[in-house]
Design a protein around this nucleic acid. Structure first.
Length: 249
DNA sequence: CGGTTTTGACCGGCGC
DNA sequence: GCGCCGGTCAAAACCG
């Protein structure tokens, strides 16, 4: 009789564990689906934005400075085929209508336009931290997800970053970074936040700012172009492996 | 009062 | 040549 009760307890214990694992599996599956879905959405948005920045009539190969696909001729050297741009996605409150992305620099807004492919207005900013700084940025809400601000940076700062204390990469309403992409050909080195990128996170994730910053500095310490894409992937992977890092997908 | 934002006008590139 | 579109200019308004 004792052995019967013992076996019954074991079975109940195993059933409880099975139930727990099933719930965990379900939660993980839902999380994976959500992440996968959001990744696809962002990837498509990125591709659209990238293609929209290309001169019409140019294939993707022309981004690498090779040939014009229609004339089949080598492009003139003075044609700036490769643009030094980087893109940053910032999570924000969709009700917040401002197009402000705090990144440690001072910006002066010089224009705003409603573009054809996105009902949300696009704001144009110039860096005002130093006279003659050529860096510009465009900020627009992501068409698929209005809670995302998409900032496109162009050019290099001709001055050091003297970030205002407390200002980090964030929007006005929220401070969680959703995703960061950088453009061909120097995904890390051309990032305008370098060398003092501060990925300060909100709330309990604040401790990751040190981690993220040190990882980025480690990854940006080399000029090896061939490894930059891998470094970016490893960087993102290192963040997602960290149990304290919350990716707001 | 000086710096910033707003917003309509303007400009240049591109397709038809 | 014309129209469309994205990017920029610049005057007026706004703000600390």
């Amino acid at each position: 009789m004792d052995s019967l009760n013992s076996n019954k307890e074991k079975v109940e214990s195993l059933l409880a564990e099975l139930d727990h694992l099933q719930k965990e599996n379900q939660a993980l599956r839902l999380m994976f689906e959500a992440i996968s879905s959001r990744y696809n959405m962002l990837h498509q948005a990125y591709l659209r934005e990238s293609n929209s920045q290309l001169p019409r009539g140019c294939s993707l190969l022309t981004r690498f400075g090779l040939y014009d696909e229609y004339s089949n001729k080598r492009l003139r050297p003075e044609v700036p085929v490769v643009r030094k741009e980087s893109q940053v996605f910032v999570k924000t409150d969709p009700r917040d209508k401002s197009l402000i992305v705090k990144d440690g620099f001072q910006w002066r807004k010089y224009g705003q336009k409603v573009t054809k492919d996105n009902p949300s207005p696009r704001a144009y900013f110039r860096c005002s931290m130093a006279s003659g700084c050529p860096v510009k940025k465009k900020v627009q809400r992501c068409v698929e997800d209005k809670s995302l601000l998409m900032a496109t940076y162009e050019g290099r700062h001709n001055h050091d970053i003297n970030a205002v204390p407390g200002q980090s990469l964030s929007s006005t309403g929220s401070s969680a970074i959703l995703s960061m992409t950088t453009s061909f050909p120097h995904p890390v080195l051309d990032n305008p936040f370098q060398p003092n990128l501060d990925l300060t996170l909100s709330g309990s994730n604040r401790q990751n700012s040190r981690n993220a910053r040190s990882v980025m500095q480690d990854y940006s310490s080399s000029n090896d172009d061939d490894n930059n894409n891998k470094r970016t992937e490893d960087y993102v992977a290192s963040l997602t492996r960290d149990p304290n890092f919350t990716v707001a997908l």
